[in-house]
Design a protein around this nucleic acid. Sequence first.
DNA 1: TATTGTTATACTCTATAACTATA
DNA 2: TATAGTTATAGAGTATAACAATA
Lengths: 165, 165
Amino acid sequence: MGQESGARDIGETGEEAAAFELARFFPYRLAVLAERVSQAVSQVYADRFDLGRAEWRVLAALAVNHRMAAKDVAPYSTLDKMQVSRAVARLEKAGWVRREDDPDDGRSQLLVLTRSGRALFDKVRPLVTAREDYLLEVLDAEERRVLDLVLTKVLARAEDLVRRG
Amino acid sequence: MGQESGARDIGETGEEAAAFELARFFPYRLAVLAERVSQAVSQVYADRFDLGRAEWRVLAALAVNHRMAAKDVAPYSTLDKMQVSRAVARLEKAGWVRREDDPDDGRSQLLVLTRSGRALFDKVRPLVTAREDYLLEVLDAEERRVLDLVLTKVLARAEDLVRRG
DNA sequence: TATTGTTATACTCTATAACTATA
DNA sequence: TATAGTTATAGAGTATAACAATA
């Protein structure tokens, strides 16, 4: 199903130096998939609610952790502090997020969803998880288990490589 | 190993409406992984050879299909025609790609790697596949099989969603 | 001195569409 | 009219670093 011809597995090298094929190159395939998935998912919030991916992540972070310092949002959402700063600025302008002073640290500010921010999240979440479900529907339980494992293990390896340069 | 607590599988919904967690959300995890992998791989050609991802893809396309019309590069590399046009312009300026007239169609141009473009590809390719191998080393044969399947099946689903809007 | 968060800047990407030359 | 490829433009995202306020 959608498989190219030949029996070579992903990442496997043949006996003789095989021709390089983009269509078999894991980083390429992963990039294409992630791009399409991101497109498929952001379609449900980008146009209708004028939300970007960074803003969606911050919204999701605050929906779970009801009162959160900006510095904690960054690692939680895999965004850096500028991305968080700008996402929060836009979310605040739209009336979805409110800032509070941190009583323990004058430099820090605590972020909270407003009532309308919570309402927005409650509207977007089911749309987004419906798409997630649709994407994963083609996988059985065992395949999902392995996928989960792969995402975790390969991410750790990639972080190794990036760290080492 | 790197797994969060709880027995919930990826994409699985609990009995009662579970809290939304970014760290369990497949599109998020996929985006983070793809970003890191792309970073890990492009590290080997970006700084040393001043190659971007689009240029790397065009280079790889021409390394396999030795003489290729620009219009065929686009679908092969999952780039659109402007990305190809710009990548080719940069590759030509650097002396890695040469254009030829298409004898069959005056609008079309055929792209060919120059000798130095081929040499560049031969230098970059092993660096890049070594990183790919390192990333996938943590997976056994069965896990690679499932990964291959997932990349194919989930991509088809995502393209469905994008097409339907 | 180090940290929190903002601002500035420059660069890359992306998306859309207008444009040319051929067909 | 449609296609191949280029150019223009604006918007989004990314990366680096300087900066103010506080610790």
